[in-house]
Design a protein around this nucleic acid. Structure first.
Lengths: 142, 142
DNA sequence: CAGGATCCGCAGTGATACTG
DNA sequence: CAGTATCACTGCGGATCCTG
């Protein structure tokens, strides 16, 4: 499997992943689009960033402090990726030192809303899932 | 960082991940539960399996043929993980050779419904996202 | 302040072979 | 048929150092 040999970059976060998407079909074609946004939503920081930006624009350093645990690398990568998808907007105020604000776009807000539904689901079923796991784990040898 | 040294297994798919969840807070506490289900939904096959099972019970081999591209390993791992979370149910008919059917549980169906919302979102905004990416990619050197 | 560049470990995934 | 066991890869994400 070749995996597209001419991509020198690494850690690109959704930029050139799933080149072999056609392999994963087998149900219907809309599955591919789903994968795209599931990857978006499933990565470690995107949802967190979007949720924070839902409360209004924030600066790079504000986000970094607010999240507390994210590396500069991942914050940058996440923001770039979100910007690329048109979910957040990047605004530079060319002062010195420069000031950069990030905002949720309209479309970004709609996705954020959708994710909120998942959050609600998680709250409503957390006990059930926890109980299920406990039962499953305890009823096995090792 | 210790990473819980006493777990010998590998490829456990959500069994012992995120031991250090407390580090990732910084927003609110409900973020952790969200991560849990985002991981569930974000992995490569779970949603696909659940969607298929939404159409009724299926046998192991049926799933394998339907998905076409999944390895036995990942199908088993995915099913086990879903079963552990109480999202699918496993029913064995002890004939010879054995017959195993998988079904979505009630709770599994509710999650499936929730994910369908994301699918709708994806369809509605696929063009927008595609256009955004194109614009972003073409307006950069390399 | 807001990043870019590099190095690297490890989890998630695939391929293959074997079994009750 | 419905898995289990092993081996190998790769790319996400963290840590660290450097810059306009």
């Amino acid at each position: 499997m070749v995996h597209n040999a001419d991509m020198a970059e690494e850690g690109t976060l959704n930029r050139a992943r799933h080149i072999d998407v056609r392999e994963t079909v087998g149900v219907d074609d809309s599955t591919c689009q789903l994968r795209d946004i599931l990857d978006r939503v499933g990565d470690k920081w995107s949802v967190l960033v979007m949720t924070l930006l839902g409360g209004g624009p924030m600066r790079y350093s504000e986000l970094q402090r607010a999240i507390e645990g994210i590396s500069q690398r991942m914050l940058t990568l996440t923001l770039r990726s979100l910007e690329r998808d048109g979910l957040v907007e990047r605004n530079v105020t060319p002062t010195s030192p420069p000031r950069v604000d990030y905002t949720l776009t309209q479309v970004g807000q709609t996705l954020s809303t959708e994710v909120a539904g998942l959050m609600t689901w998680a709250e409503q079923h957390r006990d059930y899932v926890a109980a299920s796991r406990l039962r499953y784990d305890t009823s096995r040898p090792a």
